[in-house]
Amino acid sequence: MSHDLVCKSLVQRLSNPTLDKMDDSAILELNGRTAFTTDSYVVSPIFFPGGDIGRLAVCGTVNDLAMSGASPLYLGLSLIIEEGLPFAELDKIIASVLKAAAEAGVKVVTGDTKVVNQGTADKLFINTSGLGVIPDGVNISGANAVPGDKVIISGTIGDHGMAIMSQREGLRFTIPIESDCAPLNSLVADMLAASANIHSLRDPTRGGLATTLNELADQSSVGIDLEEELIPINEAVRAACELLGFDPLYVANEGKLIAIVAPADAEAVLGAMRKNAYGGGSVIIGEVTDKHPGRVNMKTLLGASRIVDMLSGELLPRIC
């Protein structure tokens, strides 16, 4: 696969006026407070049920912008390709980059490709950076949660992580679990239109719901109380977690968000979320408290209370 060929074909596929100029930098006009983020994607396998590394790379960065309350506008896209990656596979991934970008309403305005020797990368690594503008009056931060706020999750947890696990080589485990990988900016826009009192937004990716809630509790110096029976988990994901010894609270999501919302607006926000294609399963799972700051507690199915800790180390399979 020649480098020039890749470059040409990519620019053709991703074509837009800013990119097509082919200058060293994209020149953009931005108005207002600007959010800027970057992330690298190294998922293995690069194709998985419900998505691929291309869709993930667009959605991940779009979602990081959306969680700051920004409307995502522009993406930078960098590919590090391992020599020998079939062109057809790359082509498929670029098609899904395009599809996800179109869905999120963002343009790829700058990019780069490098082809490296076999063994120095694993098929394909992608870095995306994103720029977005924060509308006036929007102030969302992990530090804004206050006691009394409601904690909302936008749907079932653990789908992405278990989709990857079920696909990974050596696990020999195939049940129909699809990644939830999705751009959440339209969902956030609908939520912002419904309420001016959304205090925090976060997408529970690596480390899952438990880790993200711990981060929020820490950042806002508040406690969070969850109710185990309210947390939505897809049946197949639950079964897979049971089999493999994972706790779904710690399994990654790529198309879900946690919203911390003033109690008076919680129902309005829920209503708006449920109307969006990516928020149909939204529910309240707990609330913010001034007790036990920095800690997440959960009322278990038996009515006892236990700590929900952060993820430590890798998720490793149990042995018996």
Binding site: T300, L301, L302, G303, A304, S305, R306
Partner: peptide
């Protein structure tokens, strides 16, 4: 521990 049985 997960279901908090000790405290109950």
């Amino acid at each position: 521990f997960k279901y908090g049985i000790r405290q109950l």
